[in-house]
């Protein structure tokens, strides 16, 4: 259906752009880390442990954002049998999973000094763990199902069902009493993070997005080479 794209041309661009994305990622990450670890102020309440936020929050955003994209593309895969979409979503999943794990681990490290516990079964944390499990199911479904057509179908179903969890994660802190605090950045209304802390947060988010792009391109190129050289996974 979508063979408008010339895959050869796409591969030409995607294989060449890896090194530029890598250089850009290193630059942005260096700026982001200096900003967030040295230049940004400490918090009035949490002092230096607030710096975990600059890793925790962007990682959680990336995990949610990437899953939303995967779910959207899976919709296209499932309904229109578009295999270019499934190639993209398959290549996006690893970095989303990595960021989900990073968000859980940094949250745990942050929770100990501030809340006084490593882990709590509150709605936000548990729903984030469920998202990690959906990522795992999605990634494993590609591995264990050898028939390409069924792998396509089942993995996209997993992504679509998992997407129901996304609004639950977002609104869990509003719907229920949770140990996790409410949102600081709101779609409507003022943010409750001081501007001197928003800037490093934004730079770190950009760095993480570039990292996702980098991993995505590498994975995508690998898939393309596999298709080209062996005629495997033919589109």
């Amino acid at each position: 259906m979508f063979n408008l794209f010339d895959l050869g041309k796409i591969f030409e661009i995607s294989s060449r752009s890896v090194k530029y994305v890598f250089i850009l990622f290193i630059i942005v990450l260096t700026i982001g880390l200096t900003e967030s670890l040295f230049l940004s102020p400490e918090d009035y309440k949490q002092s230096h442990s607030v710096r975990i936020m600059y890793v925790h929050v962007p990682a959680a955003w990336m995990a949610l954002g990437i899953f939303a994209v995967i779910a959207f593309l899976s919709f296209g895969t499932f309904i229109f049998k578009n295999k270019n979409f499934s190639l993209i979503s398959k290549s996006l999943a690893p970095s989303g999973f990595i960021f989900n794990i990073i968000a859980l681990i940094t949250g745990s490290i942050w929770g100990k000094p501030t809340w006084g516990t490593w882990w709590a079964w509150d709605a936000r944390i548990t729903s984030m763990l469920i998202l990690a499990l959906f990522y795992l199911m999605y990634l494993l479904s590609w591995r264990i199902i050898t028939n390409k057509n069924s792998a396509n179908k089942i993995s996209s179903l997993i992504a679509i069902v998992g997407a129901i969890n996304l609004p639950i994660i977002k609104f869990s802190v509003n719907w229920w009493n949770t140990l996790h605090q409410g949102p600081s950045l709101k779609i409507m209304g003022d943010t409750t993070i001081h501007s001197s802390m928003i800037i490093p947060l934004a730079i770190m988010t950009a760095a993480f997005a570039l990292f996702s792009l980098l991993i995505f391109l590498m994975k995508f190129n690998t898939e393309m080479i596999r298709i080209k050289s062996k005629g495997l996974d033919r589109l």
């Binding site: 102020p41 918090d43 009035y44 309440k45 936020m53 006084g116 516990t117 605090q181 600081s184 409750t192």
Partner: peptide
């Protein structure tokens, strides 16, 4: 038997506070 602190969504430098 156990106390957990719940922190709010406000982040700011001490000077601003």
């Amino acid at each position: 038997v156990k106390i957990l602190a719940k922190h709010d969504e406000n982040y700011m430098p001490p000077e601003v506070k």
